[in-house]
Simulated assay, not measured.
Amino acid sequence: MEVRRVVLAPGESYELRLTGRGARGYVWTWRVTGDEDAVSVAQGPEGEPDDALPGAAVERVYVVRARGVGGRARVRFAQVRPPYPDEAPYDEFVLDVQVDSE
């Protein structure tokens, strides 16, 4: 599991690219802990590259945006298969975010 730390100003965003395995039934989910109001997370635009082979791993983009309040939040991304909620994640990624107050 990789852990990355970033510092953002209010309103600033951080783009994270994670390799998808949708052909195998895996999707990335996320959960925010700590100062949950300090950040928002959204999945970026969808779209498969024109040259992607069927079943190939494709990057997924997630945008973490700092809100207007300071604080520290941890965003844990987990690659799971929704039909099997008790199965351990295939992969995990943690983003520690410090939001500097205005």
Score class of each variant (00 low, 15 high):
residue 97 V to M: 06
residue 100 D to W: 03
residue 53 L to E: 13
residue 9 A to G: 05
residue 34 G to P: 06
residue 26 Y to T: 10
residue 27 V to L: 15
residue 85 P to I: 09
residue 37 D to Y: 02
residue 58 V to M: 08
residue 3 V to W: 05
residue 26 Y to A: 08
residue 85 P to V: 05
residue 55 G to C: 00
residue 59 E to F: 11
residue 94 V to N: 04
residue 63 V to D: 10
residue 99 V to C: 03
residue 73 A to Y: 08
residue 8 L to E: 05
residue 99 V to T: 01
residue 44 G to W: 06
residue 56 A to G: 00
residue 56 A to F: 01
residue 102 E to K: 08
residue 44 G to N: 08
residue 8 L to A: 08
residue 10 P to S: 04
residue 5 R to L: 11
residue 82 P to Q: 09
residue 12 E to P: 01
residue 81 R to F: 01
residue 29 T to P: 07
residue 68 G to M: 14
residue 40 S to Q: 08
residue 7 V to G: 03
residue 99 V to H: 02
residue 94 V to Q: 01
residue 22 G to A: 13
residue 96 D to I: 04
residue 12 E to N: 02
residue 34 G to Y: 06
residue 31 R to N: 12
residue 97 V to R: 02
residue 81 R to K: 15
residue 14 Y to S: 03
residue 47 G to Y: 04
residue 32 V to A: 07
residue 21 R to H: 13
residue 101 S to M: 05
residue 60 R to D: 02
residue 74 R to I: 11
residue 70 G to H: 07
residue 15 E to N: 10
residue 19 T to E: 09
residue 4 R to M: 14
residue 64 V to G: 07
residue 62 Y to W: 13
residue 67 R to L: 14
residue 31 R to T: 12
residue 46 E to N: 08
residue 49 P to Q: 09
residue 76 R to Q: 15
residue 45 P to I: 00
residue 54 P to V: 04
residue 79 Q to T: 12
residue 18 L to T: 09
residue 53 L to Q: 12
residue 49 P to E: 08
residue 67 R to Q: 15
residue 42 A to V: 14
residue 26 Y to M: 11
residue 13 S to F: 02
residue 28 W to N: 10
residue 8 L to Y: 01
residue 29 T to H: 13
residue 33 T to A: 13
residue 22 G to I: 07
residue 80 V to T: 09
residue 67 R to H: 15
residue 72 R to D: 14
